[in-house]
Nucleic acid binder design. Structure first.
Lengths: 216, 216
DNA sequence: GCGAGCCGATCGATCGATCGGTAGGCAGGG
DNA sequence: CCCTGCCTACCGATCGATCGATCGGCTCGC
């Protein structure tokens, strides 16, 4: 009996994201032309990058003229900044909202939320992570603070588990990079062709995280 | 006693890479103007992206005029294609060269090589992974084949370990995405400010991978 | 004097951004 | 009811700058 491995491993393509499903967190107002611009920019920036998308590309996708864009946003960079803000605030809120009775449960819920954010909003995650460099330092600063805080949150949980001798991990910092890194990459491959729900991926990755820190 | 966590977690910055150390595999000829162009393009494409780097940016970094570039490469895209080719061939060669007596040792060495490739050549890895979308499908095709083969190689090792009942993992595909994903992200944060050697990171990540598949 | 390597000048196209002006809905006075 | 005035939303035309790429010609070493 042989295993059909070509079916087990879906072919990933050249794109930076596995989906074209434009989706923004429910807290974001999407009505009117401003919302339309935000949604089309999300798709274009994710697929072609900030510098690979022109003002006219964006306007054409919104079915408006390029001049109209400036009635809603002062510049192309401000559109990106708004998407980056939304992405980082949504992600950070999920991390902070994750609760747990002990270190194990806290790590599980935090990783679950981390992965869910990347699987449910892949376009937003890709833009937030891959186009951050295109922002001026001033416009990127708020996102950088949220990133640092999120890393620290994960670091604290792991340090807590170590000091309680519930976790057994060779290096706390490398555990943070590994756990956050594997979750971030989900945004690059998760899409319609992948036979998993975001919840399934989040649950399994949370289990992986507990294995990494030696708690499972 | 409190832990100085600000020292434990180095501040990462807005950049796409943690280093500016231009390095290419030894197999690549770096002599002459063609090599110089390749090296400067590696840095610029990694830091600013393909579309964020102009022909004149690249020429200026090489201390030549933009017209001279076309004496060495037919187009800007061909420069990127060459970097992508070098990156994927070097990475794939390392994976294929990884040996091991059993499933555990094979997974350990493959993950070690995977991580080493991303830690020793972060700029090359970032360009290969993040700028692949900027290539036309024809020019990206060879790299896509190498990527698919590398994924399959990892998948085969994990399936082998599962069928031998050496590994205990809830889902083989998600283990592949998690292990390869955490290794790929290393290229984005590893740099001079990080107090680990590539070998230390590779060794620890290989241990993490074995924990993920339930073999450690 | 010949080929290799480089460059100044320039091509048409496109870039991000700005301007004055127009169309349409709505409020208030007659 | 109509008329007037205004405000919001949008657009055509165009700005100077920069884009990727091309060409003929220059300057060397051999």
């Amino acid at each position: 009996m042989t295993i059909d491995r070509s079916a087990a491993l879906p072919d990933l393509d050249q794109r930076r994201v596995g989906t074209s499903d434009v989706r923004l967190p429910p807290s974001v107002l999407l009505e009117g032309t401003s919302g339309r611009i935000l949604r089309e920019a999300l798709l274009l920036f994710a697929e072609q990058g900030f510098h690979g998308t022109s003002i006219r590309d964006l306007a054409h996708a919104c079915q408006i003229r390029s001049a109209t864009l400036y009635a809603h946003y002062p510049s192309k960079e401000h559109v990106l900044a708004e998407l980056v803000r939304i992405g980082h605030e949504a992600h950070h809120a999920r991390l902070v909202g994750a609760q747990g009775r002990d270190s194990v449960e806290r790590l599980r819920t935090v990783v679950r939320e981390h992965v869910l954010a990347h699987a449910e909003y892949p376009l937003l995650a890709v833009v937030s992570n891959n186009e951050l460099h295109a922002l001026s330092p001033e416009m990127a600063a708020p996102a950088m603070l949220l990133r640092a805080d999120g890393r620290q949150l994960l670091m604290d949980i792991i340090n807590e588990g170590i000091s309680e001798e519930v976790f057994d991990v060779p290096d706390a910092f490398l555990a943070v990079t590994a756990i956050s890194g594997m979750g971030m990459r989900v945004a690059n491959w998760y899409g319609s062709g992948v036979p998993y729900s975001p919840e399934q991926i989040a649950e399994t990755y949370a289990d992986f995280a507990l294995r990494i820190v030696g708690a499972a």
